[in-house]
Write a protein that binds this DNA or RNA. Sequence first.
DNA 1: CCGATTACCTGCACGC
DNA 2: TGCGTGCAGGTAATCG
Length: 296
Amino acid sequence: MPELPEVETVRRGLEPTMEGAKVLKVETRRANLRFPFPERFAETLEGRTIVSLGRRAKYLLLYLDQGPPLICHLGMSGAFRVQTEDESLTPGLFHHPRSKLEAHDHVVFHLLCRDDVTRRVIFNDPRRFGFMLFATEVPAIHPMLDGLGVEPTGNALDGAMLATLFKGKQTPLKAALLDQTLIAGLGNIYVSEALWRAGLSPRRAAGTIAPAKGQSSLRADRLATAVRSVIADAIEAGGSSLRDYRQADGSEGNFQHRFSVYDREGEPCPKPTCRGVITRIVQSGRSTFYCPVCQR
DNA sequence: CCGATTACCTGCACGC
DNA sequence: TGCGTGCAGGTAATCG
């Protein structure tokens, strides 16, 4: 489900509830998600105060007043929702620990929030590709985070850096952009969108965006700009809501209405002067959407 | 080492 | 209505 913009939206959505909250109790309703929960998962969290919420690529980080941060990954279908005690508990079931839980609610955090109200933050993940692990150090060192590439937020990623990262690579641009060790946070949707904005074919060999000797790095510059802009636009729109994905407050993101090519097979290319038709191809087992006319 | 494929899981849309 | 098939935003293990 969530690529970087969705995880950032989740982080911002949870922040008012979780930042400064004390963890009263943690329930896990099965032994594992993608991986087993860490040893003493609940006990380690209970009694702690959540100092702040961070994000690295598609990883959500809960910084605690003591001990290493909790690393959360939403996988394909993970989502958080917040319940306030008053509205969540059915009369007659007051304080019943299982009230209002739904299928695939795997983790329940009982929190005493800064405003002195008790709330529950519930992690739901039908496919269970998500996971929760403790970092081994503060701020957030973990094998899972080692080797992650540059964030496509901010200004660090520019044409020169992209050209260097992709230099000599024969692999298609689609695969190179999905490689989290190069750029961290892009997923299947935003790779298609960024390549359309850049006017570059997903099939083009990644190494060929580098400028020839003495030439300007036009392609690399265009691609870097496209990646940064699509990520920034998607964050600003609150991410994309597909299928069952919702923001933590229950509202939907808006960016799915602004897809130029993703899931638009057969539609005309939205580029004003282009007569192309959006085409779906499969690359390394996953759908890519692009316009074969204006993306070269 | 590299890149491509498969596995992990459930739900849903679709065709018959 | 039911059943089989394919597909879905993730990463990691395996294969050549």
